[in-house]
Design a protein around this nucleic acid. Sequence first.
DNA 1: GTCTATAATTAGATAGAC
DNA 2: GTCTATCTAATTATAGAC
Lengths: 192, 192
Amino acid sequence: MTRAEQRERTRARIVEAAVAVFAERGFDGASTRLIAARADTTQGLVTYHFRSKDELWRAAADHVFGILGPAFDDVEPSGEARRDGREVLRGFVEANAAHPEVFHFIVDAGRHDDDRMRWLVDEHLAPRFSQFLDFDGSAGVRAATTYYAIAGASSLIFSVAPECRRLTGHDPSDPAVIDAHVELVLRLFTRS
Amino acid sequence: MTRAEQRERTRARIVEAAVAVFAERGFDGASTRLIAARADTTQGLVTYHFRSKDELWRAAADHVFGILGPAFDDVEPSGEARRDGREVLRGFVEANAAHPEVFHFIVDAGRHDDDRMRWLVDEHLAPRFSQFLDFDGSAGVRAATTYYAIAGASSLIFSVAPECRRLTGHDPSDPAVIDAHVELVLRLFTRS
DNA sequence: GTCTATAATTAGATAGAC
DNA sequence: GTCTATCTAATTATAGAC
């Protein structure tokens, strides 16, 4: 294994650990030492590969949104629609079930008017929102409220899984629960 | 002003500051020094009135859920229904618009299986969920998915207000936006 | 590229003056 | 009841050995 390969593997391990810890504990609650431990390495190496905690957070955000990206593409590069609205929505809910971390990045960053919020909006949320506009066909207040209603309705249950288990007795990672939630969201947001 | 009065006023100021800071920055991101500064007092006094940061967090949670409580009561103490489902739901969305802090307490605590999460579920969420069951009339997986769909759809836009402004150009504290969101949620979750 | 050691800050909690 | 000073522990970031 070359040094460049070694470098990339370590960076990838750290980024994956960072995604998990940032999602679980928020930016302030996540320590670089804990992230290093989860990646089976040391704190010094984290700041060697990523100059600051902030830069690591951005790398982690790039990683989660990179995974989720394909789930939201509803058009081929050629421009023809690949799937209808129901299939896109189903994929969106299933992606949120598989990666509840995304929701935490959004909620954590979204409540503060700071650099991280602005970066996240410009880098990852704006493209997603404009894609949504295509899906909905409209702009204005209605697009905003609909976007957040879909995002909230689709994601919350998976993002507070420990709470949901204690409160309702049901485990949101259970395929039956995921399926029920997909069907509910489809019923809510599509005609039929 | 008696000493007991002084005590209560100071405690109230600290609790209100704590609600705001915990909601903005999460448990880990909120420092007792910042909370003290927002309450126009000192850090030493915070730990005098509330023995620990954890106890302060619980007092803050009691306060926000205490404010929100009346919005969810859909029956009079006598047992007769006060409002129909649409009015209850409208009140719920408007309460989330007025107090987006609640959502942050829920999301912050809900992702960790720790003491705070268990306390919040048992103390504040369980009564709310059982009330919801009355509203819906059913139990089981469907109740769980519906509960979280309503909570997420109703709350998210108000809880990430800075992000929403930058992403959509609309301010979720604008009465017109609140109204549009109320109408959307009503359309989604009630038979018209 | 990785690790250990450490510097500089900041955290929550305590003690004592008033 | 309030405030200042301080203790201990944990944080990010840096420096240097290998």
